[in-house]
Amino acid sequence: MQTATLLLQGRAVEDFSNSALLFYLLAAAIYLFYSLWEKKALHFAGLTLLILGALLNTGAIIARWLQVGYPPFTSMYESMLFFGWCIAVVYLGFEFTVRIRKAGWGVLLLAALAIAYASLKAKSEITPLIPALRSNWLTVHVVSYFIGYGAMATSFVTSLLYLTRPRKLNQTEALASASTSGELTRKAVAFGFPFLTVGLITGAVWAKTVWGEYWSWDPKETWSLITWLVYLNFLHLRYTIPSILKSPGTKRQSVLLAENVFALFGFASLCFTYLGVNYLLKGLHSYAK
């Protein structure tokens, strides 16, 4: 209880989040060096900093939770803190399952950007929950969405790395590099898409409980559907492109290329759903600023 009081009284949220930002930035720098020199020690140092950054980020979220008294996912400030955490933690999950280390610097830079946005741009004021948000659906809806967002942020970085890969490699190297990096995007999207689906569906069920309609074409709802449709098409590309192309030799590379281009569009659409709609379009989600 005393710890909780200390967290509430001090600038615990800011202290934790600023420290997490610093650790993410340091980890990103070390991962960048790792991507150039591929030294094991560099990877170990980067991974350690990343884990410490994620722990500090967790501290910021817990401190905020204690401070506000409800799951801290309602304002832009709170969601950005959580977005940064999701990017880092989902990336950590990928670290242990796929060979993604070379993309680490880009992903961690995104996590740092999210925390920096929370610290510098978003309003940190505490406003009690409006009646519509006082529901258990809040946690399920937001957490599943942000796990999906974390995975899609990773797919954005891997697709960028794939599309900007060096062209002067010999044919075998090019194919190996292209396949590895390109398929990482597919794996990240495949991990994140089910969470986007759960987020979309729980949002609809929740809306039905609050407003009596599971779908009202509110701009936020519509843009989340658009993002879901873009990623849905991404997942269909491996069936669509071979059905159009005649030459079997070019099919695999064409699918990879199209998937990585689509991952960029998907992430752009996701960012607009998350940020653009809040600031540019009015709707039922206008509290999320």
Partner: peptide, 16 residues
């Protein structure tokens, strides 16, 4: 056909 699925999903997204 998957090509038609692709085109329809894209059209629904564009109109949205």
């Amino acid at each position: 056909s998957p090509a038609l699925t692709f085109a329809l999903i894209l059209s629904i997204a564009a109109v949205s």
